[in-house]
Design a protein around this nucleic acid. Structure first.
Lengths: 201, 201
DNA sequence: CCTACCGATCGGTAGG
DNA sequence: CCTACCGATCGGTAGG
């Protein structure tokens, strides 16, 4: 029978992961030392190693948990069985919100995937592809001829560009909130999609 | 009287900078060693240090040269005195083309600015602000009420999101060329801008 | 322009 | 014999 960990164990792991993600986001994975992570958590390095076996595990964990949340979010929205436009609007809104709440993980995911080993990176990228596919299917339903012209995926990536890039310039102290940005992105995208000219076949 | 450098000196410097940018883009600035740079250039590490005094100079040089090209490009387009929509279309086209030709520098600029020292980073960011201002002025001319609602800058950043993010997913071997992407971005943006709803005042 | 190094700091782990 | 740590230092490697 398992005796279980100390009661604060999981809380400590969560704290460490969030502090590590913050440092990785600020300085980059490889420029962050485990000494800095330990210090940011108010513990010694050996204590840190009690909770995570190595630095790399922090990176993998951060990336995977973030992707898991994004995939869960996609499933939640899909379960509502909305019309394409409404569904995509909600996906945009929920993704912007999630990014706002997980800016460090988001940045680690977009900038530090290169430090993942082949196998881990493939698993993360596979999850990203599933998320992108959910968006692009919705865009294909929105205007089916885009899908026939193979423009659904590129347009999806332009949409992701707008929201993935958002937190490089949108500062929390600024006059504009992320809640105000989501409808702006949606208006711009839904206004633009009908204007896209198809290549002549 | 200056004796001048060896005839191949500037060529070597250019080669090194381009190889270094390639490695920085692939592995990140801090995870790239000067041994790797030297090897990629087919020279010893001491030889490399003959051309650049340190690793940091390679980073600064890469960022500054790339920003200088972008600013030159903005000036060229502005000199043509086009109508706002045509001018913005051309800016988009030229930026996508420049990014395509300088993907490594572009990635270094977007992901490794954090390694610049305060003073250098400020100079680079100031150049970026001037470029953004050129875009956002044009967008303000396109639909002046956006500027009054302070949405010209956010919309500019959404546009930059689309094109800055493009080369994270657009692969040279892929079926879609960057030349085809520029008009797609422009159509989407110009179609979307009139659809943007202003916050009620 | 090479081999041969340096001061420092890295990620990770020993004994207690 | 378990867990939760500490002070000190390991083997290797970074930039220079």
């Amino acid at each position: 029978m398992a005796r279980g960990r100390s009661p604060g164990y999981d809380d400590q792991r969560e704290l460490i992961l969030s502090r590590a993600a913050q440092l990785f986001a600020q300085r980059g994975y490889s420029a962050t030392s485990m000494n800095e992570v330990a210090e940011a958590c108010g513990m010694s390095k050996p204590a840190l190693y009690h909770y995570y076996k190595d630095k790399y595990t922090l990176l993998v964990q951060s990336a995977e948990e973030h992707m898991a949340r994004l995939e869960a979010l996609v499933k939640e929205v899909q379960a509502q069985r909305l019309e394409p436009e409404e569904r995509l609007r909600m996906l945009i809104e929920r993704f912007v919100e999630e990014y706002a709440n997980a800016q460090n993980s988001h940045r680690v995911l977009t900038e530090d995937v290169k430090f993942l080993e082949e196998e881990d990176r493939e698993r993360v990228l596979a999850a990203q592809r599933r998320v992108v596919a959910a968006f692009s299917r919705t865009i294909g339903e929105l205007r089916p001829e885009l899908k026939r012209a193979a423009l659904d995926k590129p347009l999806t990536m332009l949409l992701f560009g707008m929201i993935n890039w958002m937190f490089t310039w949108l500062k929390p102290e600024g006059p504009l909130s992320h809640e105000a940005m989501a409808p702006l992105v949606a208006d711009l995208f839904f206004g633009g999609v009908p204007a896209v000219r198809l290549p002549r076949s």
